[in-house]
Design a protein around this nucleic acid. Structure first.
Lengths: 222, 222
DNA sequence: AGGGTTTTGTTTAATAATTAACAATTAAAT
DNA sequence: ATTTAATTGTTAATTATTAAACAAAACCCT
């Protein structure tokens, strides 16, 4: 029997839930911007839901959880919700990010122009290959042994790992040691980190394989 | 009251569940390969679970669902499970993939060497920019109006969308029309597709924003 | 060979997430 | 101003997922 009113939830699980919800919120924002650009200044939960592929109740519940309020009968004021979401995501300040590895993915990220629109900035890159140090002039690129210094000096808390699998864990350890708290990992391994460091994996191969499975499954049952 | 023995589940939801489970299976495979390379030939659900960050029961249940069988007291034979997973994922045959858009992401994908190890192959790229048509000699690159022909001739069912947001939906429509059944989408929009087409979105910006939120949330509650 | 121990696989229970329902509210119309 | 219609926000119910429990199996050691 539970004595407390609030039921206990495992911190790790709880965090997964928050992450999932905030990812939906980020999607809503994408969608809100779209409708704003189309000239609308209000939107209903129903419309938003249909666009994202969830139920209207889900939208209302998500908004409610993050205290994003609408108007009865009149829906949600797009600008108002956008402002609130931006505040929620601390979009008023610039978020510095470092990048380890300037291979194919790293180079693509360096050249990507979409970060600054969303108040994110790659402040430095790191690569073992001396040839990479000058090539990409958009951001300064250092050898890996300077990473800890840069992280500390620039007070960076977010890092991207785009190095080969073999060195990914080592780079991860160095990042965490120097103060990185969130890692976007492109290496095809499960990184080991302390529980207070958040890791998000991206694997194009895995996604493609899952997609292939799904399509073939669909084909079978047709 | 439900009359059928099997309870009804919404097909869309059901598909989400299968996708999630198969993604875990793909992760298990990654991990199994790692342990095989370390010289092990058997593994316990407990070990695998710890490595992936789930419970041992979850591993056993996942394996059970896909009929991946172990040996009581002796755990799972790594090679056996790997073979079964590869069979499950139809790894015996080569999976052809087309790529729309040869910008930063597209170029990175073309240069990526990991596909062939997993029996996937980019068979063609498409870009509106004539300058791109010759540049990347790893795969043939065509203008977009040849896409439908190539999809049909090569019988491709998987496509990657790495074009600018503004044309992503149009490219998607063309792909679906020509026979593509699974799409990996890098454009920051929710693509509209028929229900039997599976879409998987990848957005580096969204993942980073979620990561930033998580780290700041963590900082607050500390 | 046989008991003890360990680990699977499945069933049952607990927890979490989604959907449905509905009361409250408010914009718009008359 | 009053009424009507529509939409939110929250509570309740349902469904789905995850974890626990335990029986069955089989390896290993004596």
């Amino acid at each position: 029997m539970q004595h407390k009113t609030e039921t206990y939830t495992h911190p790790q699980k709880n965090r997964e839930m928050i992450k999932k919800n905030i990812q939906r919120i980020i999607q809503y924002r994408m969608c809100l911007l779209k409708f704003q650009n189309l000239g609308f200044d209000r939107i209903f939960s129903y419309t938003l839901a249909q666009e994202i592929g969830v139920s209207p109740e889900q939208v209302r519940k998500d908004f409610s959880q993050f205290n994003l309020r609408g108007n009865k009968k009149a829906g949600y004021k797009i600008q108002e919700i956008l402002d609130s979401i931006n505040e929620l995501l601390h979009k008023e300040d610039l978020h510095k990010i470092i990048l380890a590895g300037l291979g194919n993915i790293g180079k693509a990220l360096v050249q990507y122009k979409g970060f600054i629109n969303r108040n994110m900035q790659l402040v430095a890159g790191f690569d073992i290959d001396p040839a990479k140090l000058k090539k990409n002039c958009r951001i300064p690129v250092f050898p890996p042994d300077e990473m800890a210094r840069v992280i500390r000096e620039e007070k960076v808390v977010i890092g991207i790992i785009a190095v080969p699998e073999q060195v990914a864990q080592e780079i991860c350890n160095q990042m965490v040691e120097a103060g990185i708290r969130g890692i976007l990992n492109f290496a095809p391994i499960m990184l080991k980190t302390p529980p207070d460091v958040t890791v998000q994996n991206i694997s194009v191969c895995n996604e493609l394989e899952a997609l292939i499975y799904m399509t073939e499954k669909q084909e079978e049952t047709k």
